[in-house]
Write a protein that binds this DNA or RNA. Structure first.
Length: 797
DNA sequence: AGCACGCCGACT
DNA sequence: GTCGGCGTGCTC
């Protein structure tokens, strides 16, 4: 009998240990990377084998970890799931690294790789109407499709022909030319009914099989659509990526890679890795593809993917949000057809399982997906491209708080895949890596063809107030909007605030109306005639009197998309479509709104940041940006970066066809440097200034950040634990002399209370983060509840 | 996650 | 006196 070390798949923070089980000889094929069912306490749960060993090794480990425990009391693995290991060596390595780096248990890291939370389900067993037991069943049933191939008899029948059975002859004809068994769906696409196939099978003319075979169908050169001539810059970028793809053999770690992928086996570890991605001067394994808006990054992606596929490698394309990137999916499908699989959060567990299966077997070879797609199993991953790599949606906010770009980087490093990070406004971390020569830097500074960057007008809204214009829309933008629709062109207006009025204040006592469960202002939503909390989602009636002092002099302040919609809708000749979280949830999906807009059912598209991203509508010649400063004034170190990116992206929507575009940018702070730089689309200057500031303040990329959040429904308890942890960290800092480290806080989180839970933060900035993490993981705080570790947080407040 | 164990308030 | 609240700890 063998013995195995099993990580228990339970979403529990404090289950850092793994457990030893006997593996009956009948299950001898199982080993590291296999999924199993094990008895755990009184229940049966799913687990992952992370190591296997013989009796002596098992004894030795048991002796070390738990001397009081007899090996004879050891339980045995109940069942083995699947017919091969779920985790490849590379996936295991990535999971171990992730657990250490993001400070979660190995099981928590490993379960990210499973499509769905667990792959088993507990089925109740009844006897005479009484529940007597639970049975474990596999959730993901291997799904096979009935498919048909032509037989010799069928060929003969086809050669002979038939005057009566026209449909059958047609079906035989199709089967004859098919390169693989044809299933019902594929047949129906070619106007052959399932009934006919059935008849063929009965006659012995076709063979009924179950389809579950691998294929390598990427040899349909005729379908390639190289309609566009690449620009010089694009061609250079493609050539550089191709050269790296030629150099790096997929499936193997890069040559210079020497360090072990972490030793987080018995009890996790503290993220020991910190190695730069291999960067050979001429053939880096990682690139930043920095291209201004409209410069054609997708063209580069497509050709790089094409090259990888020709080498028999698989391609992963990460996108920030699938709904906003329908265009990328369409372009890839036009090029690569059936090779493309798509993974997004709305897939069912089974659909997701199917997509994972396709990638693992090589039935599909391009995966386009959001954050979680980075955990898909691959047969032979050779190229990963992260589109809009600066987007914050790549960071998971819940535990484990991983960043998909970093996971992609680790997977690439360990599998010899090439990584391409694409952006018009890269994260400063990636930009820094590129300009300092750690990774390749590919730049697209020009838009192809006759398209130019739009001209930007900055409007000072204080001047509007002085001129007694109290509208959200400046006089200039109003004129431009009317002129644009008059010329039969379209406009996009960005206002990054949902609702109608953004806060309600009492004129007598100055109190603003806040959510009773969260520490934020309530927003008035005109469509529901209610006050809504944007954090917990609760709605409340519109107050007639101030809940604080009873005064009736209550006033609505601030403008959101609903108010702007009303104002713009009243302008002559304008039909406005609103796109924000509310309109996409209740009425139509993003795609439907974009589709209606591009069909010109409306001439103004108004909305939150989702109007700024990923789509390309040729008749848009005007972009209006209202309250350009609203995102810049957040008290967070990344606020400038996010603001600059949003302004640049929004401005980049204008003039993407052959008509020149213009942008009207409204602000109360026209001298703001970020606004003026965004108006000029001057990323380099922005990045230079921002990097200098970050260096000064020890923010990334110069220092790493760890945010520790203590959560409790009792404010006092949260403070007590946070104070204690801060004291602990400071004393360890004194004792261990960590390299350049600052410990800030504890202080209340940016939103100090959400759903009645108080949130207190401690933020550590450090150039010795590995030691800081190790210190915390060795302490009792690793498993204490109500404490959340966020490594490389998006916000440090 | 489940489930057992254990230590303080309102009840037949 | 006891039932049961849910905080704490354990699962090979």
């Amino acid at each position: 009998m063998k013995y195995v070390l099993v990580a228990i798949n339970l979403p529990v923070k404090n289950l850092f240990r793994q457990f030893i089980y006997g593996l009956p000889d009948s299950m001898g094929q199982a080993g590291e990377g296999w999924r199993v069912v094990v008895p755990f306490g009184p229940q049966k749960v799913e687990g992952f084998i992370v190591r296997d060993f013989d009796r002596e090794e098992a004894l030795a480990l048991l002796q070390k970890e738990n001397p009081g425990f007899s090996i004879d009391k050891m339980k045995e693995v109940t069942a083995v799931l699947g017919t091969r290991p779920w985790f490849s060596e590379e996936m295991m390595g990535t999971a171990k690294w992730l657990a250490g780096y993001y400070m979660c248990s190995l099981a928590e890291a490993m379960r990210l790789f499973i499509p769905g939370k667990t792959s088993i389900r507990r089925k109740p067993v009844y006897q005479e109407g009484r529940l007597i037991a639970y049975e474990i069943e596999e959730r993901l049933k291997a799904r096979t499709v009935v498919a048909y191939t032509i037989t010799e008899m069928g060929k003969a029948a086809l050669a002979e022909g038939s005057r009566r059975a026209k449909a059958q002859m047609q079906a035989l004809e199709v089967l004859l030319h098919a390169t693989e068994p044809l299933d019902r769906k594929e047949a129906e696409a070619q106007h052959i009914s399932g009934a006919v196939l059935q008849t063929l099978a009965e006659k012995g003319w076709a063979l009924r099989t179950e389809k579950r075979l691998l294929r390598n169908s990427y040899d349909r050169q005729a379908e390639r659509k190289e309609t566009l001539q690449l620009t010089e810059e694009q061609a250079q970028a493609v050539a550089a990526i191709k050269a790296s793809l030629d150099y790096f053999p997929a499936g193997k770690p890069a040559e210079e890679e020497t360090d072990e992928p972490g030793a987080a086996v018995f009890g996790g570890d503290a993220g020991k890795q910190k190695t730069e991605t291999t960067c050979e001067k001429t053939r880096p394994q990682e690139f930043l593809l920095q291209g201004i808006t409209g410069s054609g990054k997708t063209e580069v992606y497509l050709r790089a993917a094409d090259h990888a596929l020709r080498q028999g490698k698989q391609v992963l394309v990460l996108v920030p949000e699938i709904a906003l990137t329908a265009q990328i999916v369409q372009r890839f499908q036009a090029w690569f057809g059936q090779e493309v699989a798509v993974a997004h959060s709305k897939l069912s567990q089974n659909e997701r399982g199917d997509v994972w299966y396709k990638m693992r077997t090589g039935e599909a070879n391009v995966l386009i997906g959001v954050r979680s797609a980075v955990f898909a199993p691959f047969k032979n991953l050779g190229l990963v491209m992260v589109d809009e790599e600066q987007e914050t949606s790549y960071k998971q906010e819940e535990r484990p708080a991983y960043h998909a770009r970093e996971v992609a980087r680790y997977r690439c490093k360990n599998s010899g895949a090439v990584l391409v990070l694409g952006s018009a406004t890269p994260s400063l971390e990636s930009y820094f890596r590129a300009v300092s020569g750690r990774i390749g830097h590919l730049q697209l500074k020009r838009r192809p063809g006759s398209s130019f960057l739009p001209a930007v007008d900055v409007v000072d809204m204080r001047e509007e107030l002085a001129q007694k214009n109290y509208s959200v829309i400046s006089r200039k933008l109003r004129r431009e909007l009317i002129a644009t629709v008059h010329a039969d062109q379209q406009a996009i207006v960005l206002l990054n605030r949902r609702g109608y009025s953004t806060f309600v204040m009492c004129r007598d006592c100055g109190e603003t109306l806040t959510c009773p469960h969260c520490a934020v202002s309530l927003v008035f939503h005109a469509d529901e005639q209610a006050m809504r909390c944007h954090y917990c989602g609760n709605t409340y009636p519109i107050p007639e009197t101030c809940p604080h002092c009873g005064s009736r002099r209550i006033k609505f302040f601030g403008s959101g998309t609903q108010k702007a919609e009303q104002e713009i809708g009243q302008m002559p000749g304008i039909q406005v479509l609103r796109m924000d979280q509310d309109s996409t949830a209740t009425k139509m999906a993003h795609e439907e709104i974009i589709r209606r807009f591009s069909r010109k059912e409306a001439n103004v598209l108004l909305g939150t940041q989702m109007v700024a991203k990923g789509h390309d509508i040729p008749d848009v010649t005007l972009v209006g940006i209202l309250a350009a400063d609203s995102t810049l004034n957040m008290p967070d170190f990344r606020a400038s970066e996010r603001g600059f990116s949003l302004l640049t992206q929004a401005a980049g929507r204008a003039g993407r066809g052959d008509k020149p575009g213009r942008v009207v940018l409204q602000t109360y702070d026209p001298e703001n440097e970020i606004i003026t730089l965004a108006a000029r689309q001057d990323y380099e200057t922005f990045a230079g200034h921002e990097l200098a500031m970050r260096k000064e303040l020890l923010y990334p990329p110069y220092g790493e950040i760890l945010k520790v959040t203590v959560v409790d429904k009792e404010e006092k308890k949260a403070w007590e634990l946070a104070d204690e942890m801060a004291r602990f960290l400071r004393s360890r800092y004194e004792a261990e002399h960590w390299e350049r480290t600052e410990i800030m806080g504890p202080f209340p989180s940016g939103v100090a209370k959400v759903r009645d839970l108080y949130r207190i933060n401690i933020v550590v900035k450090s150039q010795a983060m590995e030691q800081v993490k190790a210190c915390l993981l060795a302490s009792r705080y690793r498993t204490v509840k109500n404490v959340f570790f966020d490594v490389d947080p998006i916000m440090a407040i």
